[in-house]
Write a protein that binds this DNA or RNA. Structure first.
Lengths: 237, 237
DNA sequence: GCTCGGGCGCTGTGATCACAGATCACTAGC
DNA sequence: GCTAGTGATCTGTGATCACAGCGCCCGAGC
């Protein structure tokens, strides 16, 4: 072997396939709420939009369907599921349990570096939320960053994957409402809960961190349910 | 519309695609441990074995890969991941948290019918485990049935999906060990924990149910880790 | 004897084609 | 006028082909 000192730290040039790219694109569309519940999706059209053949899109969609993030309606139509109030509440309860646990564990195990990141993101979110003209897109992104900064400190990769999928499922519903409402109130709540969570993690107080995250999720869910946009389960559409 | 009284209760003739079938087949292979960590998988060979083209197998495998149940090695080889001790322990801790919560919730909300099912399965498992010549395949299946009978009573469909995926990830490792060991000890432990869980669910004692399930998972994980089959994380294979 | 090089065969990935099912609009018939 | 049938056109699903990358094995050269 000749001198590969220079080769040692090559950035492992990413082996992203088109399928992965398509998946990431769709996931982003869902997480940011640009795809709303009930929106239909066509493989061929999406493929054309991405500028690829149907194959990669097809596999990406297949994955999303398997995760329950998308669904194929009986008429062979792909769409983002329309969640009833009950289903949404089940999802919220699951999130409260899973993300609450992750937050509690993060409080116990966080390193100083992780705590620093959490502080920074929380400050950024607060600044954005309290600004005169908050950028909703950016606020949503920062909210997500903050939550995952916290969960990332739990040290359980499998749990992180689970939470990622839960956010994908909840994303469309949450962001749909968040897109068309005053949201002042909601953001006020979020700020309070986020501060509580940060403080609890600083103090290594697991239960308090779990409670803060749970309250955050519950408040958002209650807010959305109170708007009554979600249909009860009754047949189709 | 003419008389569709006779049509009203048609069993909705299942719209299973070949992809779904292939997925189910692979999932079963993984859950039952017939596919061990490190085993390689070829799309074309699998397709030939199933008697279909590569397409359905390909999508099924793609889903499994997205879930982390399978992985594609850099050499473009599909295999079931080789888990290090650390990764396995992370998985176990995640399972303890998630399944423990599900069990606790099941204890609070179980109906009489669900309790009956749990009792029946537990009895069947006990009978099989205590029989002179226990059928391992059947014991594994009954163990799985019992756990899911419990979790099914939690009333949270999203949580059930999560647990299903966790079992898929843990399946190969657990069943691999279970396939080649005396296992008497392990089964004895499982019996005790299962009885505790059943009793806690009967008494609607959530924390006790969670503790019993946690102990069950922990005991199995400790047992496997103690055998030292799992490699520590050090490069590849 | 050991090592390096090149061809062969396999791999997953992507594109393209073929098909059955389902929706929709239009039209013929009561 | 309204309904029922029928064809066009979309849908996802499955099969087949094309390709680039990689492992492997065998043989030539030092």
């Amino acid at each position: 072997m000749e001198s590969l000192a220079a080769l040692a730290d090559l950035p492992q040039l990413d082996r992203r396939t088109l399928t992965d790219t398509a998946y990431a694109a769709l996931a982003d569309l869902l997480a940011s709420g640009r795809l709303a519940p009930g929106d239909k999706l066509s493989l061929r059209r999406s493929a054309a939009a991405f500028g690829v053949s149907v194959m990669p899109v097809r596999e990406a969609v297949s994955r999303l369907v398997a995760e329950g993030v998308l669904e194929v309606a009986p008429a062979r139509i792909i769409r983002v599921p329309i969640m009833g109030a009950e289903a949404f509440w089940c999802l919220a309860e699951t999130r409260i349990a899973v993300e609450g646990f992750a937050a509690a564990r993060a409080a116990d195990r966080r390193t100083e570096a992780e705590l620093d990141t959490i502080r920074q993101v929380e400050t950024a979110f607060r600044a954005e939320a309290e600004s005169r003209e908050p950028d909703r897109i950016r606020a949503v992104q920062l909210n997500r960053d903050l939550h995952f900064a916290i969960y990332g400190a739990c040290g359980l990769p499998p749990l992180l994957e689970i939470i990622g999928r839960l956010w994908l499922k909840a994303g469309p519903v949450i962001n749909l409402d968040l897109r068309a409402c005053p949201e002042r109130l909601h953001q006020g709540f979020a700020l309070k809960r986020h501060a509580e969570a940060r403080a609890a993690i600083e103090a290594r107080d697991g239960p308090a961190a779990a409670a803060a995250i749970a309250a955050d999720i519950r408040a958002a869910a209650d807010f959305i349910l109170s708007r009554g946009t979600l249909r009860e389960e009754h047949g189709k559409d």
